[in-house]
Structure formats: C-alpha cells, structure tokens
C-alpha cells in the first residue's frame, strides 16, 4: 500500500515499529465540503485479475499468458507476417468454446476456406463485410478505404468509418465472446486517422465484460488503450532455406519447382510482446510458432 507523503508521515518509535499519524493538513482537507466523499488513491479497491483465454497457439500463450477478456488486444505486422493466421486461430479457439464471435472485416478479406481449415465454427461467427454502401446509386467505396461523395452530394462512409460504427454497435449490444476488427490491409494513414477517443470508447465498452476485442493492423494504432500488444514478423529461416534449396537445385529443373506444401507449410512466425498490462510479467518477450498449409501440395 503506498501512502501519499502529503497525508501521512512515518515515525520510528522507541519499540522500533513504524507508526504513522495523520498530518494536520489531511484533517483540514477532509473537512472541506468539496472533498467529502472522495476516496483517496490508497484506498481504491484492487483491480480484479483479468481472465485469460487461449489464443489457440500454445507457444504464444506461454509468453502472453493468453488473450485477456475485457481488454483490447492489438496484433500488428507487415504483410505475410502471420497476422491472419493468428486471427483465425483465436477465432477458432473462441468458437470452439461455443462463444458467439463477430469479425468486422474492413477490407472484406476473409477466406472462408482458410477459416474452415483453421477450425472456425461458422454457426457462431457473425462476419460483417465493410466497404459497400447500403444506399443504391451511391458510390461503392469497396476499392478505396476513404470516404467519398456520391453523385447526389451525399457523403458515403468509407470502410473504416463503417467498421468503427459497426464495432460500436456490437460492443453496445453485448454478449459476444470475441469481437475482431481486421484492419490488416488498411493503409497506415487511414488506420491512424481513427480517433483515439474511439479506442477509449471501445476500451470502456469491453471493460468488465467477458468480451475480447482483438485487432490486427499493419502498425500499432491503438496506443495506450491496448492491454496486450504483439508484433509479428515472418521468420526468414524457412524462406531462406527454400531459397538456398532452389539455388542449389537450379540445375535440376524438377527440383527447382517447390510444391505448395513446401512453400506454405511450416512457415515460421516470430511474435514479440510490445506491451502487456498483465500482473504476471513474462520471462521472455519473443516467441516463435509455425503454420501449416491449408492443403497438401
């Protein structure tokens, strides 16, 4: 328990035990009518331990302790860094726990075949595909993430704005075990244009609920609102190995063409823990896990 130096002071008495007595300032402050009913920081209730759920990847859970409920988890990384693999893994783990999940797909990029291979139960998944305008005769904003105006002069929402509104609705509705926002292909400048107030609002909406708000982006954009922040990158070992193999076998035409499984099976993903507000501090902050190909080549 930390005590404010303004309020208390410690004294060493003759029996060598610490005692503290109230300063006259404290008595004076507490007598003020404006401060009546205000609890000092030292007396605030302890924050309950967060409930963690599995991400579906054992190696990652060892480092992070799992994905925290009632918090925002942000995963960032470049293209082909394994973000979507992690997303599908988290989604599959959640649907297999019989939780209702929602995926706000900003660029409409989900591949249902990959999702099914990952073990996602579609009956528990609400997939919201942003990017199209519900109004007829308005410009389709599918190809562009920016807000545009249609020929009637009405402003049609861009996919990012749609995603923010849809996420708001889903979080306010409640009852979802996992809400995912996929900002993976959204340009950095647009992803960073989402106001910080929106992330604070989302944080407040999921706080003290069993909902996990999971986010994938190219670069970190949730900032301090994220309780868990991971950065993924593709480990170059596997790709380098294939490269070397191809270079070595370039004389043999048959060996120079790798199979689908050789290319996509066992891709190494390196995950680095950027931020964690968990009680337990991790022993290590970097982990590696591998992915398997959807189909055998």
């Amino acid at each position: 328990m930390s005590l404010s130096p303004i309020c208390t002071q410690f004294e060493m008495d003759r029996s060598s035990t610490f005692t503290f007595k109230k300063l006259p300032q404290l008595e004076r402050f507490s007598a003020l009518p404006k401060l009546a009913g205000i609890t000092s920081a030292s007396r605030l209730a302890a924050r309950p331990a967060l409930e963690m759920v599995s991400s579906g990847i054992h190696e990652l859970d060892l480092v992070t302790g799992g994905i925290p409920r009632g918090c925002i988890t942000e995963v960032c990384g470049a293209a082909s860094s394994g973000r979507t693999s992690l997303l599908l893994s988290v989604l599959a783990a959640s649907t297999q726990r019989n939780e209702v999940c929602a995926l706000v797909d900003v660029t409409d990029a989900l591949d249902p075949v990959s999702a099914q291979s990952a073990g996602v139960n579609f009956e528990k998944l609400l997939w919201v595909r942003c990017g199209s305008s519900p109004h007829k005769n308005s410009l389709s904003a599918r190809n562009s993430c920016e807000t545009k105006k249609d020929r009637f002069g009405r402003q049609s929402e861009g996919p990012v704005e749609q995603a923010v509104r849809v996420t708001d609705l889903l979080l306010q509705s409640g009852g979802f075990g996992l809400v995912i926002i996929d900002l993976g292909d959204v340009p950095v400048k647009l992803a960073r244009r989402i106001p910080l107030t929106s992330w604070f609002r989302f944080q407040r909406a999921v706080e003290n609920t069993p909902t996990v708000l999971f986010l994938i982006t190219s670069v970190p954009c949730v900032q301090t609102c994220a309780s868990l922040q991971l950065k993924l990158r593709a480990s170059g070992k596997k790709l380098s190995a294939i490269n070397c193999q191809l270079s070595a076998g370039s004389r043999d035409q048959e060996q120079s063409i790798p199979s689908h499984s050789l290319l996509l099976d066992g891709l190494q993903v390196e995950g680095e823990l950027l931020r964690s507000r968990m009680e337990r501090k991790p022993v290590q902050s970097v982990t590696r896990f591998s992915t398997k190909a959807v189909r055998a080549g």
């Binding site: 599908l88 297999q96 075949v113 993976g184 959807v294």
Partner: peptide, 11 residues
Amino acid sequence: ENNTAVTALRI
C-alpha cells in the same frame, strides 16, 4: 489440433 495455426489467405 487447436495448437496449430494455418497459413491463411487474405482474399
């Protein structure tokens, strides 16, 4: 089976 991620495709 849960503990293996798949190489996912983004369409």
